[in-house]
Computed example of a mutant assay.
Amino acid sequence: MNTKNQPLFIAFSSQKGGVGKSTFTTLLASLLHYRMGYNVAVFDADFPQHSLMKMKTRDLAMVMENQHLKKMAYKQFSTINKKAYPILQYKAENILGAAQKFIETSYIPIDVIFFDLPGTVNTPGILKSLAGMHYIFSPITADRLVMESTLVFTQLLQDVIMKKGETSLKSIHLFWNQVDGRESTPLYTIYNDLIHHLGLNLMESQIKNSTRFRKEGEENTKTVFRSTLLPADESLLRACRLDLFVNEFLKIIQL
């Protein structure tokens, strides 16, 4: 893959915990790096959890203990002829400078850097970090508190930071996550109308609710979903409509 001189900076961001930002960071990073041929790096600034750093440690242990996954990983890395993408740990206030230094010193050209950022505006440096992104994707669920916090924060970014021009942000996109088919369709219609009324971008793709988003790999599993070392199984992607999301995501960022 040819890369641009400046990699894309992308964050899955939310002001509400538990909506999937770390999961989507991992899913997209692994798909782009291991299956689509791009060179990816991830910066974990979600202090103090640093869940992606912990996830990488768990994933490595699971691959080493599961013979099927070990064979999958060996075949994958032999075929793509590159290492696992790096996950680097920094605080939000230092992350843009650290990312730029990483780009300048990397011996391979980087196409995309994903940032896992803290979910609160009270974190030092968080607004500056978000303003340094090229694209922000915000998962939303049909929950009043999630919607209120996400809409207020997205409006802040779009109407204040982006309009001032002191930002690298090209666009911010909301998308529905954990969509349950049993929920009332009019509820989503009301929320969709509100989002459009506020002039915010809403992706067409909707991610179906799945236990896979909250589940680590079983001991003897032969497929993976959320992993920092292997891309998600294609059948699992289709089951929750993540394949459609990935296609729309790639069109937005124009990679």
Rank of each mutant, 00 (worst) to 15 (best):
R241Y: 03
E65K: 15
Q178K: 15
M147P: 09
M72K: 13
T150D: 09
A45K: 01
D180L: 11
G125C: 02
L27M: 03
G20A: 12
H196K: 05
L250M: 14
L202G: 08
L244I: 03
L117R: 01
T167W: 02
K83R: 11
Q49H: 11
G217I: 01
T141C: 06
E218C: 10
L32I: 13
S78P: 07
L230N: 14
D46N: 14
L255C: 04
L145E: 06
S13T: 09
H173C: 06
M72Q: 15
I161D: 06
P139M: 02
F175E: 09
H197F: 13
Y191C: 08
L96Q: 04
L194F: 09
L237H: 06
V246D: 04
K21A: 08
V146R: 03
R58G: 02
N5Y: 11
F43Y: 07
I253K: 10
Y191F: 08
A29Y: 10
S227C: 04
T228W: 07
S235H: 04
H173M: 06
A73R: 10
A92N: 11
L242N: 05
P109E: 13
T189M: 15
K222C: 05
A142Q: 12
F213G: 01
S235I: 06
K91N: 15
K91A: 10
N122T: 08
M53I: 14
H33W: 11
Q49K: 08
F245L: 00
L117N: 07
N177T: 07
A41E: 12
M162V: 02
T26D: 09
R238D: 04
H50G: 07
Q206V: 05
D143T: 06
S22Q: 13
G119A: 01
I95R: 00
C240H: 05
N66S: 09
M133N: 07
R241P: 00
L117K: 00
F137D: 05
Q155Y: 10
N81Y: 04
S106F: 06
S227T: 00
N2W: 11
T26N: 07
I172Y: 07
T189H: 15
M203C: 11
N192A: 13
L127G: 01
L60G: 02
S210Q: 02
Q206N: 03
K251Q: 12
Y107L: 10
V40S: 12
Y188R: 12
T3N: 10
N177P: 04
K82M: 05
S13I: 02
L174Q: 02
S51C: 13
P139F: 00
S227K: 05
V42D: 10
S78Q: 13
M64T: 14
R214F: 12
P7V: 14
S14H: 08
A61E: 15
K56W: 10
I126K: 03
Q178M: 14
S14K: 05
W176Y: 14
L151G: 07
I95N: 01
S227E: 07
I136G: 02
I110T: 09
L60F: 07
